[in-house]
Each structure stands twice: as C-alpha cells, then as structure tokens.
Simulated assay, not measured.
Amino acid sequence: MDFPVTFQIFGKTVLAHPVFETLGIFLGMRFYFYLKRKSTEKLSFNTSAAVLIGATAGALMGSKLIGNLENPYVLFENFNFKRFWTNNTIVGGLAFGLIGVELAKKIAGHKESTGDLIVYPLILAIIIGRIGCFLTGIHEETYGLPTTSIFGMHLGDEYLRHPVALYEIGFMIVLWICLKIVEKKRKYPSGFIFQLFMLSYFTFRFFLDFIKPKIEIAGNLGAIQLVCLLVIIYYIYKIKNTNKIKL
C-alpha cells in the first residue's frame, strides 16, 4: 500500500483522514439518533438542545485548543489561523465536550447523566476516523515512533513505525465488547458506562502517546497526556464516589 491514500473529490485531491473523519461523524450521529429513538429515557427538547449545543461547542473548542498545544512553540511563536483551525485531537474534543455538557445541564437544571447513549456511537466514529488516520500515514501527525518490533510498518517514509491508529482501532473494538459484557452483568446507575468508557479511553491514550512523536511539556509528558491524567483522576474519583464501587 502506498501512503498517503487520497481521493479525487470534485476535481481536488483529498487525504483519507478528513474523508473518514467526516464519515465517522456522520455515521456516529446516525447511530446515536437510532439509539435515541429506541431509548426509554426521554429528555425534554430544552435539555436535549442544551446538551447538544454544550457538547458541540466544548468539543470544537477543546479539540483545536489541545491539538495546537501539542506544539505550543508553533502556536505562540508562529501563529497561523489556518493551522490552528485544522489542528484537532479527539482527546481535547472529549474532555472539553464533557465540560460543555456539564455546564449546559446546570443551565437547563438537569441533574441526571446523559452520557450512556453516546458511548457506542462515539466508539464507532473513532474507529472510522482512525482508519483515515492510518491511511494518511506520516502526512498528518497521527503516526507512531520508529520501532524494530514485529508490529512496525512503513507509513510513507524509510522507517518502520508503530501503526498507532491500528492499535487504537483494536482497543476500541475490545472496549466495545467489554462494555457490552459489563452492561449485561447487572443494572448500573445511569452514566456508569460512559464513565467507564472515558476512564478506559483516556488511560489508553495516556500510554499510547509514549510511542507517538510529541513535544514534552512537563517531564516527558505532552499536552495530550496531561489532559488524559486530569480526566483519569476525575473519573476515578467520580466512579468511586458516585457508584460506590471499589477499584
């Protein structure tokens, strides 16, 4: 396979990443609305609208902010709006999307968790998006460090690299299966599956970023890893105190 994989769309050459990212968002949203129609838990229009606006605004801001803070020297010393707008990370999107939802729920006066329904659509969207990351190779900053392990792949340069996008796809498939098993064990409080998803995904991303190129911000940790640590600490506390489960 030659990297990067591109598509001809309206006479223009487009990398696979934005194509699959858009497809992932579209299919994830369709899956979410399908699950929402089947769900017995109904939210009022005002609450649904507030949550949607909060999640979208938070995710948009967070994905770009954390994505650009991965290389703060470029952000602050040589600011370029186009680069800022096109630089994203799902870690920032999820973390700030959570903040946006919580603020929206406070404004709407809604206290119950609203996250469980979005878990599997999120996993689906991430899997499809990571297919695009893999097909783009080294032409966007979603590739792994060089490696001599049996997992190394040529992604568009002379090095064998960790195919981190494939690692993430594999992890998300396993996580989907594990969460389904947990759901069938017994009835959990509303929001528990979302909490477990967030704790699992951010823990995985914290360790995955050790084999990805990064600018070290604190010690040997990059911006994404620092965000991951904060979210991990938050959800360990939340799961232990809200659900009364010993970890």
Rank of each mutant, 00 (worst) to 15 (best):
V51F: 00
F84W: 14
T242N: 13
K187P: 00
L230N: 04
E183R: 08
A59P: 06
V231M: 00
Q8I: 13
A223H: 00
L75M: 11
M153W: 10
E216S: 15
I131A: 05
Y188C: 05
G222Q: 05
V101Y: 00
N88K: 14
L208A: 04
L94D: 02
E21R: 07
I173A: 07
G11S: 06
G222L: 06
L23M: 09
L247H: 04
E70M: 12
W176R: 06
L199A: 11
F20K: 06
N220G: 14
F10P: 15
N241P: 00
V14M: 05
I232R: 10
G144H: 04
I126D: 00
I150R: 01
T242L: 14
I150T: 12
C228S: 07
G219E: 10
P146T: 03
V19H: 09
N220S: 14
I245P: 09
S200I: 11
E158L: 12
E102K: 05
K106L: 12
R30M: 13
R161T: 07
N71Q: 08
L135E: 05
M1Q: 07
I177P: 14
T242H: 15
H162F: 00
L247G: 11
P213D: 07
K240N: 09
R30P: 07
L35Q: 08
T13V: 13
F202I: 02
K180P: 11
E141Y: 15
L229F: 00
T22V: 15
A49F: 12
L94C: 05
V101A: 03
Y34E: 15
L103C: 06
I215L: 13
A50V: 02
R83S: 03
Q225H: 00
E77V: 06
L229A: 03
K36Q: 14
K105F: 02
G191P: 12
N80L: 04
N46V: 15
Y201S: 10
I9L: 12
F84H: 10
F134N: 00
T114Q: 04
K187N: 09
F192R: 12
